[in-house]
Amino acid sequence: MRIFVSIFEEAGGFISSFWKTLIYLKEIGKTRKDIVFQINQIGVNSLPLVIFTSAFLGMVAAVQTAYQIRDYVPLIYLGAGVAKGVMIELGPVITGLVVAGRVGSGIAAEIGTMKVTEQIDALEVMGISPYRFLFIPRVVAAMIALPMLTIIADIVAIFCGMIISHFTGIANYILFTRGARLFFLPKDLFGGLIKASAFGIILSLSGCFYGMETKRGAQGVGLSTTKAVVTASLLILLFDYLLGVIIFG
């Protein structure tokens, strides 16, 4: 019983901070410079990690798909399968999860530290809303950065999938690309990017929310970062399903 109450309380707090962030969206003009800075923090600085992860993702996807379909399905479908799988599902989700680990925890630690060192109080006493000053730039930046990272992840993954199937002799690159292009639907790509945008909101908001919830004491900030990443990851998977049903269902 206790645990349900606290889950609902937490969900309520989370939703209410999303709502407050929306309200302050009207003052977005004041935070333009911060948004650019955050896109750099969240997007550009996550690039190496995202490229590395998606390279292996693409290779695994190609080899696994080939293994599963080899005896039943013509290999022209390999490129199509890998490209679709990456664009619709693997690209956005893996990018979301990886960035949640890196950025969600970073945001929670940063804001949590501000909380315990009274910097949040200082903002409030100056009449500056932390939602406008801290939440908006991060959430908006992540919302923009995640689709961009996902496009790069998609390209890297599909390319590496192609390379690996070519050089391991599964299917040469001409067959692979022909398959990928033949069955390409713009909806697959854009649906995936919309999901990525939603994941950006989820992971940044989660970092902001648990950062603000940080309690004093030695455990405080560490606990917040853990909660931020766990919650973001679960919500990303949940929304991956929900949005998948809405977009592709």
Partner: peptide, 16 residues
């Protein structure tokens, strides 16, 4: 009310 208030925190609380 807050426009009339200044506050110096125990640990300074400067924005890092």
């Amino acid at each position: 009310a807050r426009k009339n208030i200044g506050f110096v925190f125990q640990g300074a609380a400067l924005f890092d």
